[in-house]
Design a protein around this nucleic acid. Sequence first.
DNA 1: AAGTGGTCTAGACCACTAC
DNA 2: TAGTGGTCTAGACCACTTT
Lengths: 273, 273
Amino acid sequence: MRYWHMPVSTSSPKGIESHPVAERFGYRDLADYLRDWVRAQPAGTRLPSERDLAVRHGTSRLTAARAIGLLRAEGLLDVAQGSGAFVRQVRPLIPLVADRLTRGGRASTRIEATGQIAEAGLHEQVEVRIARLLAPPDVAARLRLTADIRVLVRHRVIGVNGHPLRLAISYLPLALVEGTAICRHDTGPGGTYARLGEILAARRPGGRLAWFREEVTTRMPAPDEAAALELAEGVPLIRVARTASDELDAPVEVRDILLASDRYRLVYGIPAD
Amino acid sequence: MRYWHMPVSTSSPKGIESHPVAERFGYRDLADYLRDWVRAQPAGTRLPSERDLAVRHGTSRLTAARAIGLLRAEGLLDVAQGSGAFVRQVRPLIPLVADRLTRGGRASTRIEATGQIAEAGLHEQVEVRIARLLAPPDVAARLRLTADIRVLVRHRVIGVNGHPLRLAISYLPLALVEGTAICRHDTGPGGTYARLGEILAARRPGGRLAWFREEVTTRMPAPDEAAALELAEGVPLIRVARTASDELDAPVEVRDILLASDRYRLVYGIPAD
DNA sequence: AAGTGGTCTAGACCACTAC
DNA sequence: TAGTGGTCTAGACCACTTT
């Protein structure tokens, strides 16, 4: 047995008193105990075992396990079978800066990204899959096209050290991009948006990539999403739905990006006028 | 007994085969069963009771309860004691458009917001608390001020029909705003940013509110946060950390906004050059 | 080999909802 | 009053990690 210093909790189930009789010390109370304790500990600290906690607080092991389960769902713990439960490391969040989409930003994207990644001692990897498909109804609607249009689909997994950080799936009208570098795995310097700008400029005078619109939502991941992003317990998923439009406000690309929310923060700059 | 039509699942615990012997039908398998079923049902559909599920699948009630618990954590169900578990309603998300911060956007904010709210048959309410405090260290840093600076703190709860939708806590250097409408509950037409613009313009030639920067992160809420926003199970919290700066890039306000992620979507427009 | 979490059983009592 | 979820007990076996 080791020495654990834990705070004394005064909370009760659901925060509402119900009985006049003796109150039970339930798993929520134990969770409150442990939450306060966990917050005061450095990352990596191991919790007492479930059996320890049960004995110490005079409950069954299941009750102790449930208390720990609550903290897991809150994203406070990492639990390893055979090993124990540990205070989770809060990792620094990689900034995803919207300015990267501007002309100036695009030119320096590779350098900035490399700098950030290198700074963290990481090695970025991108895995690309390309397909030509009929546009799914929602994608067609976002592209303001009829549902029977064919699109180029670029599915990318961006990660470091073999671990995924985000998924990006991009849809472009095939009529617009077929035969260009956008259909290749390596889209060249500046990436898809640089190519898209060139294509639009060649198509008509004044043609250009003019505007991006991003919609940010978040939710808990489905099991397959959690697996694809290797999300730990209690970590939500961020979804960015992006639309790129030309100078006439016609959409030319839609992209869905799924991010591990414990790895990224999104940064936007908004001029006041 | 009612008639439930459920799909046949083929998954196994953790998705990895381990035994050569007969496989157990565990709570994860049952959850997979139920997840497929739930996704095919309209919102509000009631699940079989835990006791029903246990009998039907030949497991204990705890196993059935655990399966349902998984789906709850994924945000798929609403569960009411004494009543049952129901397929959760996916509510339409209120767009929070970054353009509302621009000069043009501010002028029409009230009208747009009213229109949106009215459209949904809702009645918006704002509850304001105001305090004058020493700036917390992180706030002082974000304002690029020393820690012993005094700030005006505006704490707001925005909701409809008595239910909170988001919390906003805003910090402004007291030296800048003391005596202005920003210190009152009603900041007047255009709100805090309109007043801030006037203050900056009056302070020196060319003075103005020039830039906003927003940082978006998300995580599971702590219990007190979940209570304050009345978050249902399996619903993450969105945090927007905003900094408003003047024409010299000096921060004049920082604001933390906490959003119920099942009520909002964030919308940003980004020019391509 | 010892300890840890993962999972399960069979039963129990409570609080709450609906009829 | 019957049915539902909330919670608990006491014990068990398994898979996995650590020593």
